[in-house]
């Protein structure tokens, strides 16, 4: 019952935040310098052509009217038409979203699991070689410049060794082959996912490792760990059943928080690997002043962040009875 009330409260908060974001986004794009039409025209086009484009894109309307249309488009779930694609924005988003979700959630889950696992080990061997190697490794990969790392991985594993494709999400050889079934197509996607996933993983797992490590070290000082030890429990049980669940709580929060920050890295990774996701669409639509698409991409990301924060909160409540009850 308590949990339900808590979730309801959080959902109401999220809806309010979402509307603030909705409005801020609209203003941000309209006030930011740049003119969508100027970027679409070439010297063959006359003034008249440009004016027609403006009307066609709905940019001749006063700002207030544009905002109302924007709200209407949002509430009808339509989001308008992309300036460049001409397709309904919602179609484009739905087409790209699964790709981003696939890459992103896999990388977050993988890096969180591995980070927590390694952080646990590092804390257990505090001050030893294992710990130093892991800590330094985590710091290095976490702070490295992402596009650089991505290009290095491409250069080594895709170009020099030729183990993986340079970029993309699928290869035409497999998808054009009428005999290729679901399994080989799924494998093809996984095969293409290895490098972008590794990039995101390398960038993110270090943070989880470091958080888990310091959290573990704090937890190990707690009295209940002493109790557990006095009870004569095995070390493994103490570490995995008593220390780790408590120590993992801050990691769960940080997954939620880091999600918002890792969008940036996601967009870069998608761009470098030409992964057909929201992040890449976001980068290109912003640079081309494709307002409807860029707004929808931002909204989608804001939505994903808000919802995943909610999930994290609920998960936290589930993991920590002090919040649940």
């Amino acid at each position: 019952m308590e949990l339900r009330k808590y979730i309801t409260k959080r959902i109401i908060q999220i809806i309010i935040i979402f509307f603030v974001i909705l409005t801020v986004l609209f203003l941000l794009f309209r006030l930011a310098p740049g003119d969508p039409v100027s970027m679409m025209v070439d010297p063959d086009m006359t003034q008249e052509d440009a004016e027609m484009l403006i009307v066609q894109l709905g940019l001749e309307q006063p700002l207030g009217m544009q905002y109302l249309i924007y709200l209407k488009n949002f509430f009808t779930g339509h989001f308008g038409f992309s300036f460049h694609y001409g397709d309904p924005v919602v179609d484009i988003i739905w087409d790209r979203l699964p790709n981003t979700v696939l890459l992103f959630t896999t990388s977050i889950i993988l890096s969180a699991l591995v980070g927590v696992f390694l952080g646990k080990i590092a804390s257990w061997h505090k001050g030893k070689k294992v710990d130093s190697i892991m800590t330094i490794g985590a710091l290095v990969t976490h702070t490295v410049f992402l596009p650089w790392l991505a290009l290095i991985l491409i250069w080594i594993f895709a170009y020099k060794f030729g183990w993986f494709p340079i970029n993309g999400m699928i290869s035409e050889e497999v998808w054009l082959d009428p005999e290729a079934g679901f399994i080989s197509r799924a494998l093809d996607v996984m095969y293409h996912m290895v490098l972008p996933l590794s990039t995101l993983f390398l960038i993110h797992f270090g943070a989880y490792l470091l958080i888990m490590r310091s959290s573990m070290l704090e937890t190990l000082k707690e009295d209940y760990i002493l109790t557990a030890r006095a009870k004569g429990l095995e070390e493994k049980v103490i570490r995995d059943h008593h220390a780790a669940p408590n120590a993992a709580l801050p990691v769960v929060t940080s997954v939620g928080l880091s999600l918002a920050f890792s969008i940036n890295g996601g967009a870069l990774t998608e761009t470098v690997f030409t992964w057909p996701g929201i992040g890449r669409e976001l980068v290109s639509s912003v640079s081309q002043n494709d307002y409807p698409l860029a707004q929808a991409c931002f909204l989608m990301i804001a939505g994903v962040v808000l919802i995943s924060n909610l999930v994290v909160d609920v998960l936290y409540a589930y993991l920590d009875p002090r919040i649940r009850y």
Binding site: E222, D223, Y224, L226, T227, A228, A230, K231, G232, H241, H242, P245, N246, L319, D320, P321, R322
Partner: peptide, 20 residues
């Protein structure tokens, strides 16, 4: 430990694991 000799700890408030 515990089977032969057990201990009641100084900080009983924190001697129990909060998530179990």
């Amino acid at each position: 430990r515990w089977r032969e000799m057990a201990m009641i700890f100084q900080a009983a408030m924190n001697a129990l694991n909060p998530v179990q």
